[in-house]
Nucleic acid binder design. Structure first.
Length: 439
RNA sequence: GGAGAAAUGGCAGAGUGGUCGAAUGCGGCAGUCUUGAAAACUGUUGAGGGUCACACCUCCGGGGGUUCGAAUCCCUCUUUCUCCGCCA
């Protein structure tokens, strides 16, 4: 867990991470919305409001004490100038007493603030109104379906067997070098993967996203900023010697590029893309569902991130969805889009669309992209704001999505494009690969 | 890794114990002028907490200390820059 000293700093940094005022004003609406996640936060909200009241009360007392103390100090200064040393010394004594009082109050205030923060950061984001209620992936709502599922017949092989047959991915070698979940790509497999990365980046930059290359390890503050910490601490690899985390997605370093910024309104929107390997511990997953490329500890992903004016964030979300659709159409892969239900929605997200490609040989859908609007949830933690035209500072909305995650796209291509002669390369990728068949 | 310097508002950059939340410039906003724009001129402009609104409190890289009083003095951490060394 987090060391005590650091916790203090983080709390300070994250102050007011979910605005208490909003909870006060929209209490019932929020409580209602959170039932979609299967949560009853009534008692939590009461505790928040109570803690906030405590905090404000203590702050008021402290302010009064400090105010008095400041006045004395000024008077003392004046008295010394006028040569009234005795009077000054009397005041000094009083001032010392006030200082004692303020020390105690300060400590109380720190505690009250920590208590409030603790309560606040345990609360997940408020689901958007379109989010269906539900408990797990079975309640997700299919909103779009496109593409043709090829008829391959019984002899169709799952991708891990194709990988072996054509010697393009070696899972055992990865086990030797590192462990399960760290595959080695080889020959045309490696080339195809590199082609996909380049192709995705080109698509994204053509659509106006600025390409970034970012660090693959992040510090604690970044983890908090995008919401991976403390909620998902166990899912990230932690380099304890230097107290850094291997990134689980480019979202973390890319979004944190803007942490703490006060942007001008005309700087919005900011759109970024970046390719990174991603590292996930994914503890506790076993069985056929994690075979081959289905679930890995290290995988490649090209991410898109947007920082938007709150009024535009849902338009932006639709725009991102259309963008990802375009890529899948290019690749001619059958896919569907799901609107995640409350129970399946990530802690930090207000609305998420999952893209799934149909994996023909496995006869199942594989998630290859997740596009989310976090509204002001991350911005609040990141202290990422912009100056409105009226001069007021407001939190931005952040969004991100995969465009795309590599392994399952690769799995989808291998399985859907398999022929008796070998694996055909999707037309758009041929120029990037330099070959049109893996055989 | 060794030696030195530095960290101030959106940016640049003054300020070394008491009316400093902080000069000045740029940028932003509003206005004058203009057919419109630019330029020029005038005004305005840090953030957080708190309040119905004031008052008031906090913040000059982070943390701690000295003092009645700290941007200013001390300790410590972090970061940046310059020079040297090492290195893909």
């Amino acid at each position: 867990m987090i060391s005590t000293v650091k916790t203090r700093e983080i709390y300070k940094f994250l102050r007011n991470m979910l605005q208490v005022n909003e909870i006060r004003e929209n209490k019932e609406v929020f409580i209602q919305a959170l039932t979609k996640r299967g949560l009853d936060v009534r008692t939590e909200f009461e505790a928040v409001l109570k803690a906030d009241e405590d905090r404000r009360g203590t702050q008021a007392q402290l302010d009064d004490t400090l105010s008095q103390s400041n006045k004395f100090s000024k008077e003392i200064g004046m008295l010394f100038k006028q040569g009234e040393v005795q009077k000054a010394n009397e005041l000094k004594q009083k001032s010392v007493e006030l200082k004692e009082t303020s020390k105690v109050l300060q400590e109380q205030l720190n505690q009250a603030t920590e208590r409030l923060q603790q309560l606040l950061y345990d609360l997940p984001n408020i689901p958007h109104e379109s989010v269906p209620a539900g408990t797990d992936e079975n309640d997700n709502e299919e909103v779009f379906l496109e593409g043709e599922i090829p008829a391959l017949g019984d002899e169709a092989l799952p991708h891990w067997e194709l990988a072996k047959k054509y010697d393009i991915i070696d899972f055992e070698l990865g086990v030797k070098v590192t462990g399960a979940g760290f595959p080695v790509y080889k020959g045309k497999g490696a080339k195809l993967q590199r082609a996909l990365i380049t192709y995705f980046l080109d698509k994204n930059t053509e659509a106006g996203y600025t390409e970034y290359q970012v660090p693959l390890m992040v510090n604690e503050a970044s983890g908090f900023g995008t919401g991976q910490l403390p909620d998902k601490e166990g899912q990230m690899y932690h380099v304890t010697a230097d107290d850094m985390y291997l990134i689980p997605t480019a979202e973390v370093p890319v979004t944190n590029l803007f942490r703490g910024n006060l942007l001008m309104h005309n700087e919005l929107p900011i759109t970024c893309t970046g390719y990174t390997p991603c590292f996930r511990r994914e503890a506790g997953s076993y069985g056929a569902h994690v075979r081959g490329l289905n679930r890995l500890h290290q995988f490649d992903k090209v991410e898109i991130v947007r920082i938007e004016h709150p009024d535009n964030s849902y338009t932006a979300l639709e725009d991102m969805v259309e963008h990802v659709k375009g890529i899948l159409r290019d690749l001619k892969l059958p896919y569907r889009i799901l609107r995640l239900c409350g129970g399946d929605l990530g802690f930090t997200s207000a609305l998420t669309y999952d893209f799934e490609v149909f994996s023909t040989a496995q006869d199942r859908w594989l998630e290859i992209s997740s596009v989310s609007n976090f509204e002001s949830f991350q911005a609040n933690r990141l202290k990422l704001r912009f100056k409105e035209t009226d001069g007021r500072n407001q939190l931005v909305h952040t969004l991100n999505g995969s465009a795309l995650a590599l392994p399952r796209v690769l799995a989808g291509i291998l399985e859907n494009y398999q022929t008796p002669e070998g694996i055909k390369i999707p037309e758009v990728l041929v120029p990037y690969c330099g070959f049109d068949m893996i055989s």
